[in-house]
Amino acid sequence: MMSTFFTLALDGISNSALYFLMAAGLTLIFGLLRVINFAHGGLFVWGAYAATFLYSAMHQFWLSLCAGILIGGLLGWLLERGLLTAVYGDGNQQLLLTMGVLILLSELIEIPFGRDPVLATVPPILHHSWVIDHVTIVAYSLFTIGMGACIFGILVYLLQKTRVGLIIRAGVNNQSLVEARGIPIRRLFTIVFLLGAALAGFAGALAGPYYGSITPSMGMDMQLNAFITVVLGGLGSLSGSLIGSLLIGLTTSFVSYYTPSFAVLANVLLMTLVLLVRPQGLFGEGEIV
């Protein structure tokens, strides 16, 4: 009984790491650009396919992760420069546009790869698991958690200790004043969007071997959970995203073990419950870190 609990908890936390990578980008982008990027799941699925195919072709795991990051960043850059600049300040247009891009990116994947799941294998160095006291510990899960923790650390460092981070935090609070300080805020929009998009691609690249297979619709599923995560944690807050992703990751893991079809419903209920008590989400607005 206890062993099931710990096995599920570990699985839940590694799930959380993936959600966090998605939520962190979403929340940073929202904090600064005031855009809820529904296309984030599309970057995720492209990251997953890019990484999986690079890995099956070259058997270079690190390179495949880099491919996910690159494709995410590149698509994000194109999306921000090419489309989003036209609709800043218009929430409805942003919603329609980013939703459309999510659907488009998911559909485009089907053209070369079809709808069927594609196998994504774990590289040999990470292909281990241990059973200690009936608790199953999977090496790749630990690796995923480690990656999530690393990215959290890097983001906190970036935001708190660097000049770019200082400017981002300032921009979240008062954009027009940042401009008055001689800083081009639009360039910062691009940087933050690209960063968030690269993280989504990275999450996709990590997710393939984690799930064992990838499908074109995985982006949509991920988008839903990532969206719930950021709303739950508080839009615009990085700590909120961390806590939110842990809650959603663990809930998903436990609920899908006992009643698989209720996992998404449970997450939506959790979000609704939190929003009833705290409409601004767990960490509310104002402080990005």
């Binding site: 200082l166 935090r169 300032a170 979240v172 609070n173 008062n174 027009s176 004043l177 401009e179 008055a180 300080r181 001689g182 800083i183 081009p184 805020i185 104002g286 402080e287 990005i288």
Partner: peptide, 23 residues
């Protein structure tokens, strides 16, 4: 653009919201 005007050496203190409250 505003940021270029600032770089010419023009400082601006607005009437409201003239600092970064979170910093």
């Amino acid at each position: 653009a505003t940021f270029r005007i600032a770089r010419y050496g023009i400082g601006y203190m607005p009437e409201d919201h003239n600092l970064f409250a979170n910093l």
